[in-house]
Write a protein that binds this DNA or RNA. Structure first.
Lengths: 112, 112
DNA sequence: GTCTAATGCATAAGAACCTTATGTATTATA
DNA sequence: TATAATACATAAGGTTCTTATGCATTAGAC
């Protein structure tokens, strides 16, 4: 049962981190990358992805570069300087969030 | 800056797990418990808490028991049988979610 | 050769869940 | 005696997701 029911506000973080690790990516590529990394357990829908990409661009965290592949448009996204700063913050915030959840839920996490 | 900006859909899981560990709790007590366990970093607002408790009750995961403390009403919540089953599932789902995020984000988590 | 799936972009309606604000009342404390 | 803490609750509004739809090109199956 894919999709883990929700991305729960972490989609921005996911997109920014993938861009930080891959230099530049286009939308469809992001959906495939997430699907592959999660072994099909997390699916990013287009209805969630594109509005988020547009929002990140409006906020100045990513910049775009459109390319024609044959007759098909492909829109590449790349981090801006403030995007690079933002990734670090968001990853830290995510880790803190996990720490808090572990304490509140009183659970332990296994690490490989 | 408390509140970690969002509970991100994990409030049900938090409430159910606290009830699983504490037998019975009332609403206000839950807000205090979360605040204490998170050392003030996670705040459960009443506007989020009460509708969620009512929803859990409507779903049959918790049952209530009202008590008068002096002239003040206190409404205790307790897990039902299906609530007990649900906690386990939700905790497992949460751990899986973390595993997936760790893989997708390509990060490591520290464990104390 | 032609139909379908995959690639690739995008938007819109509706749902879920949160924040912020408000309301009421009792009890403890400064 | 006023304010903070305790204790419940609901409502408006915002964010972010799902689901549905739309358009077009390219690859692959039959």
């Amino acid at each position: 049962m894919p999709n883990t029911e929700q991305l729960r506000g972490n989609l921005q973080t996911i997109i920014l981190k993938l861009l930080a690790d891959s230099d530049k990516m286009y939308g469809y590529e992001i959906t495939q990358k997430v699907r592959d990394l999660s072994e099909g357990q997390m699916l990013v829908t287009e209805g969630a992805l594109y509005p988020t990409l547009h929002k990140l661009e409006a906020e100045g965290l990513v910049k775009t570069e459109t390319r024609m592949i044959g007759k098909r448009v492909r829109k590449y996204y790349r981090l801006t300087k403030s995007g690079h700063l933002s990734v670090r913050e968001k990853i830290e915030e995510f880790k803190e969030f996990i720490d808090i959840m572990v304490r509140v839920l009183n659970i332990k996490l296994m690490q490989a």
